[in-house]
C-alpha cells in the first residue's frame, strides 16, 4: 500500500526562483484561504461529539460563522480531524488510517479530556489510550469534559491563527508544536476558581474548609 507515515520529502527543497517577497505574499493569501475553509471530518466517538460536532454545528451556535460547517463523512474530502471522544486500543489503528487517508495539509484538533490525556479513564482502565497524541500528531487541544461549543470555537480560532502564521508553501509538511487553547487572555484561571469556590460554599452543604476528623471519617 502506498501509505507514507513519515513526512515525505519536501518537493520545494530547491529555492523557488523569484523574489522572497513574492512567495511571502502568496503564502499569506493561501494561508488565509486555508484557515477560513476548514472541512471537518465527522468523527465522534463519545460525549464530545454531541457538543463539539452537533451542538456547535447546529443553528444556535453556528459553526458556519467560522467557515468550518462543511462536515465530510469521507477522510479524503476533509482537512480537519476533530477527535471528539475517547480513543481506545481497538480504535487506535482505525484512527491512524483515517489520519493517513486525509490529504495534506491536514490539521488535528483534540477535544475533551479523553482525547488530551485519557481523562476520567486515565487510571484503572485497560483499553483507553492516554491522549490522541500517542496515535497521531495533534495541533490544538481543547480542554473540557466535554468542552462547550464556545470553547471549541476558541480552539478553532487558535488553529486558524496557527495556520495564518505558520505553514508556508515552501514548507508544506512542517508542523508546529501543539497548542492548548485555554482561556481568552482577559480571563484568569484564578477568577474561575474563586467563582467556583464561592458557588460551592454559597449553594451547597459542602464545606470546603471543614475538618474531616469532625465528620468522623
Amino acid at each position: 500500500m502506498g501509505l507514507i507515515n513519515d513526512n515525505p520529502e519536501n518537493p520545494f527543497k530547491e529555492a523557488i526562483p523569484g523574489s522572497p517577497a513574492f512567495i511571502t505574499s502568496i503564502d499569506k493569501v493561501v494561508n488565509w484561504a486555508r484557515s477560513n475553509s476548514l472541512w471537518p471530518l465527522t468523527f465522534g466517538t463519545s460525549c464530545c461529539a454531541i457538543e463539539v460536532m452537533m451542538a456547535a454545528g447546529a443553528a444556535h451556535h453556528d459553526l458556519a460563522r467560522f467557515g468550518a460547517e462543511v462536515a465530510r463523512p469521507s477522510p479524503r474530502q476533509a482537512d480537519l480531524l476533530v477527535i471528539a471522544g475517547t480513543i481506545v486500543k481497538r480504535m487506535e489503528p482505525l484512527l491512524k488510517t483515517l489520519y493517513d487517508q486525509m490529504a495534506e495539509p491536514k490539521y488535528v484538533i483534540a477535544t475533551g479530556a479523553c482525547a488530551i490525556s485519557g481523562g476520567p479513564f486515565i487510571y484503572d482502565s485497560y483499553t483507553t489510550i492516554r491522549g490522541a497524541h500517542e496515535v497521531i500528531p495533534v495541533d490544538v487541544y481543547v480542554p473540557g469534559c466535554p468542552p462547550r461549543p464556545e470553547a471549541f470555537f476558541y480552539g478553532l480560532l487558535t488553529l486558524q491563527k496557527m495556520i495564518i502564521e505558520g505553514q508556508t508553501i515552501a514548507k508544506p509538511f512542517e508542523r508546529r508544536k501543539p497548542v492548548l487553547s485555554v482561556l481568552p487572555p482577559r480571563i484568569k484561571l484564578e477568577q474561575i476558581r474563586d467563582e467556583l469556590v464561592k458557588n460551592l460554599t454559597a449553594r451547597s452543604v459542602t464545606d470546603l474548609n471543614q475538618n474531616p476528623k469532625e465528620l468522623g471519617l
Binding site: K89, I122, Y123, D124, S125, Y126, T127, R130
Partner: peptide, 10 residues
C-alpha cells in the same frame, strides 16, 4: 487478579 502492562494504577 488481572494484570496488564497497560493499566496505570492511581
Amino acid at each position: 487478579d488481572y494484570k496488564d502492562d497497560f493499566i496505570l494504577e492511581r
